[in-house]
Amino acid sequence: MNLETDPAAGTPPPGDRPPTPEGGDPDTLTRRPPAGHLPGPTHAAVPATVRVGRLEPAAISAVMARDIVMFKRYWRATTFSSVVQPVIYLLAFGLGFGSLVHHVGHFRYVQYVATGVVATAVLFSSAFPGMFNTFVRWRFQRTYDALLAAPIDAEELVTAETLWIAIRSGVYGVAPLVVGFFWGLTPEPAMLLVPFIGLITGFGFANFGVLIAAFAKTIDNFNYVTSAVLTPMFLVAGTFFPITQLPGALRTIAQFNPLYHCVALVRDLSLETFHLSDLLHLGVLVIFALLLWRLATTQMQRRLID
């Protein structure tokens, strides 16, 4: 499905990098002054203003700064995979299926699907990076080893990584709406809230991905989660058809699907059918996000610090 983008998902573990040949390195041939006598004041040490505690903004923003540098390098691939796939669903269902099914309730099918696929875009652009980036950076690239030797706690590390993914997926979640505008979806002011709904949902699913990565033995383990959890989740979220069409038991299960609440909330905001029950959807998403964040941070902490 949506392969993440940062460096390494899908590429061989950097542990297997071939050694770089040493010869002919011009830098090693030039002399330099001894390191001890370089210009500048000695031992700036820790600035007095530095705060040391839990969830320090400086620590979180520093880890995110790394993500942003990485993103600048890979944004094309990341964006392509995060946007194109939901748009394909939108076109295939909205236009293809839409020629058979014209309406769901009083919405036109294209409106129905375009607003529903927002959640799909958010899911794909958060759960997959959550799993793959974490596993690759932790196990293959030893990035987390490097970061944790600096004054960064595991909690800050996980929070920063998932927050960055969440911000991205909030933005990518808007893509289906933008595409929908070309097929008769009407822009509404309340749609400006969609990125925030995407951010909250994406934060939950990014942390879900991290939690899976914390337990995964190998990167192939993610296939089970994709097939057994994420795919069914995205199919029975009310994206393509109302969950009221499902048999009773499945309908009840679907109510526990966070993605269903994201779909419902985004749709009600975008189609101006917002009512009080949407606060319940929002509440579920917030609780889902906070719960998964706590689980992901505590489990990663236990595994990163042995």
């Binding site: 460096p7 790394r66 540098v69 990485m70 690239q141 030893r142 490097a146």
Partner: peptide, 12 residues
Amino acid sequence: VVPQLDNLDVEL
């Protein structure tokens, strides 16, 4: 800290 195993970000 200079670790025993290289953990530089190779793409940066």
